[in-house]
Design a protein around this nucleic acid. Structure first.
Lengths: 153, 153
DNA sequence: ATGCACCTTCCAAGTATGGTAAGGTCAAGT
DNA sequence: ACTTGACCTTACCATACTTGGAAGGTGCAT
């Protein structure tokens, strides 16, 4: 199976498969004489695992850990659960922060008539006063798995 | 006023002030003979505006637009409101997506005993089935204004 | 044999921010 | 005058993930 087939079978783009290989997330597969990567169903399975973990917002580093646990037949489910709970906490924190930003903006927008006149409480709100967040946002606040994937053709 | 003073007065780091200048978000200020940037209170006001817009999750490009509206005395508040409403929609969409990821993970974690045994529904959930999101996440899904600012000393 | 789709590697961009290095400048103290 | 320390300058690197492109090789069907 060439990289293209593996890509469509796993839902991970060929580009990303090479990238995951480079950063050591997946093993380098055998090569044909011409140097083409050759994948098996097991590789596709791995890639799907990665894909799903990315979909859940795990970073590449975390997925490395998850893969380790996946392969470790003697793993303790507690270890996996801890990672999952940490991730849930982070995700919810990020979601809350975004919602707060939206709410702040909403309260400004609610006061805005939104007509042809120049008076605008939103602009005024941006102009005046203290910074809106004094809180230090958590590192890794953003959603790191921004998959700016073009629609599949 | 040197860049350091402008930074602490506006809440934008010196680093970012230079960056905003480079990308054309703020005007290049006058320089002293020694080449130091020299800021006035008006510049600080501008920078504060930028800071607040960033806090609300607007991207640099969007802030460029907002600044245009800010300076435009004949602006229609409707134009500003539309940008705000768009932003609110995006923020809420991102928040929802994050929450969905958290919920999916929660449902997996809820089934996990979290003990010393290797059986783990989370791993099993990652392993099996279809990709968790088929939806193409919106470009700019992540929170772009990750201000990973070290705690102010 | 030609063309087209696919593969390869390497390099770059974009986003917003921080870090570091190497050097110039300023103001205060000696 | 000289030193010191804080501040400034530019330039480049790193982060995390993903895409895009260039330049060239390969495989298969017509």
């Amino acid at each position: 199976m060439n990289i293209g087939e593996a890509a469509s079978a796993s839902g991970v783009s060929a580009k990303m498969i090479r990238y995951y290989e480079k950063v050591g997330l997946v093993e380098a597969p055998a090569r044909t004489d011409a140097g083409y990567r050759s994948y098996g169903s097991r590789d596709v399975h791995n890639l799907r695992f990665v894909r799903r973990a990315r979909d859940l917002g795990f970073t590449v580093d975390e997925i490395r850990d998850l893969l380790g646990l996946w392969r470790d037949q003697g793993r303790r489910s507690a270890d996996v659960k801890r990672m999952a709970l940490d991730q849930i906490r982070l995700l919810e924190q990020k979601a809350r922060h975004l919602q707060e930003m939206a709410d702040t903006l909403k309260s400004l927008a609610d006061c805005c008539t939104g007509d042809a006149r120049p008076d605008c409480p939103i602009i005024a709100g941006l102009e005046a006063g203290q910074p809106l967040t004094s809180r230090r946002p958590n590192r890794r606040f953003g959603v790191t798995n921004e998959r700016a994937v073009p629609p599949r053709r």
